[in-house]
Simulated assay, not measured.
Amino acid sequence: MTPADLSRTVLHAVRRAVDEDALRAPVPARVRVERTRPGGSGDYACAVALQLAGPAALPALEVARILRERVAAEPGIERVEITGPGFLSFTLDATAEHHRALLDAVREQGLAYGHGDALRDEILQFHHAREVRAAVTAHAVRRLVISQGARVRISCEEAPDPDWARLGVTVDAHGTPPVPLTGIRPVPAGATAAELLRRLGPDAARWGLLRSAGHDRAALGPELLVQGEANSLFRVRYAHARIRALTRGAALLGFTAEPAPDAERAGHTEPAPFDSAARPLLDLIADHPGVLLAAARHRAPDRAARQLEAVAHAFFDFHDSCPPLPAGDEKPSAAHRARLALAEAAGTVLAGGLSLLGIRAPEHL
């Protein structure tokens, strides 16, 4: 179950409670769930009971009890607890079946995994200064909000720099509309599109412009071209290339990914497909739709970039702990097929996220 699935499950429980007259309150348009903070209970938490307590004229703890009854029995939910003044804390069912459902969803949706329609009713216009970072940021924000169903138009205060096109930037109009895209710190003097393209190329330039939050200084030094772990762009793209190499290696060994890690399906005892190193990667993949939606809502492509860094880091930890390819004379097993499916899901998230940022995801590095 992804955070988006959990949010819909809780919203459905609210509707049921209202329909059954257990709650008398307006049904919210959406329900927000968040990762539980360190030291907290469960995997996710939600404050919807506190939100509904006033309109329902009930204590928040009573609202939470009403909703817990309707959520606890849903598939994918292992446990629902009430904490504090009325927070709902959810522990998800982490069985192989739910891992398989998550990986199947990524495989089915492909590069569109994480896209949605939460912003489908929004018609947006972004306006930015005639400056390269503002232009690239507006273009990335446009991709993000479109991925969540919004319609958007971009304008620039003056005629756009022709070199922006080489960075993948398009502008619909120029002039002065009423709502500018604000809070973007310009690049240092002299760092024009042409200069950045000459020095860094389009992919490294876009990453450098987008990786930092808009109000922070953009890191645009030669480190963006270094092929090493300290370069976050290289690490993200290397993770994607490594995953593609795993798929090619598996084909040479005569097997493909199959998100079915349980020994019963395999028909005999198999080595464990995942250990605890897989959980961070599975969690990040499950969280990906929520991260993209938050990046779109907050006009913050840096959130998407940091998500890709986290996925790449978790993939390498998982790869080292649970190799997707057999070693030596070892035969490919159901465990290897399941591990490969998780690796490929991570690769899909990396490729899709880079695409939203306007950056290529090469298959070879």
Rank of each mutant, 00 (worst) to 15 (best):
A335P: 10
P202W: 07
L253F: 07
N231Y: 14
A150W: 09
A205R: 02
R70F: 02
E344D: 15
G290V: 08
R70H: 13
P301T: 08
E195P: 06
D121E: 14
R297A: 03
A94Y: 01
R279V: 13
E20T: 14
F255E: 02
A294F: 05
R16V: 08
V18I: 02
A13V: 04
L308N: 01
A312Q: 04
A250E: 12
R15E: 09
A312G: 09
E62R: 13
E258K: 11
L111T: 10
G228H: 13
L102D: 00
A47H: 03
L181I: 05
V145M: 11
L144I: 02
G175P: 07
A296N: 06
L224Y: 14
R237N: 09
R8A: 13
S155I: 07
S321P: 13
V171G: 00
L354M: 11
A135T: 03
V141A: 06
V80P: 09
A266E: 11
L6R: 01
S7A: 14
R237T: 14
L357T: 01
K331F: 13
A150S: 13
H336P: 12
F234G: 03
E229N: 07
R217H: 14
L167T: 02
D329R: 13
A94L: 06
L282P: 04
V132C: 06
E131P: 02
A47Q: 13
L225E: 11
A72R: 14
E78H: 12
L119N: 03
V349E: 04
T170W: 14
R153V: 12
A304R: 00
D172G: 15
D117H: 14
H127F: 01
W207E: 02
L196F: 14
R248W: 08
L282Q: 15
A96V: 11
D317Y: 11
G249N: 05
S89H: 15
A327H: 15
P261V: 05
L209F: 09
R153E: 08
V18P: 04
P186L: 10
V31A: 05
R8T: 13
A314S: 10
G114T: 05
L181H: 04
L209Y: 06
R211P: 00
D317C: 04
A204G: 10
V226Y: 07
R235N: 06
G328W: 13
S212W: 08
L342Q: 12
L88V: 09
A150G: 08
E229K: 09
A241C: 12
P85R: 10
L92F: 05
G183I: 10
H174D: 03
R16S: 06
P178A: 12
R306G: 09
P362L: 06
L253E: 10
G201R: 02
P3I: 01
P332L: 10
V226N: 03
G249L: 02
R360A: 15
T348G: 03
T247C: 08
H174Q: 10
K331D: 09
H98S: 00
A118P: 00
R153Q: 09
V10N: 02
E258P: 00
V48R: 03
R107M: 06
A4M: 03
A60F: 05
D317E: 14
R303W: 04
A105Y: 02
D121C: 00
R15L: 03
V18K: 01
I66C: 08
A57R: 15
L11Q: 11
P160G: 08
G116N: 06
R16G: 00
T269A: 15
A57G: 10
L342I: 07
E195R: 15
T83L: 12
H364S: 08
A53M: 08
L61P: 09
A230P: 00
I77Y: 07
I82D: 07
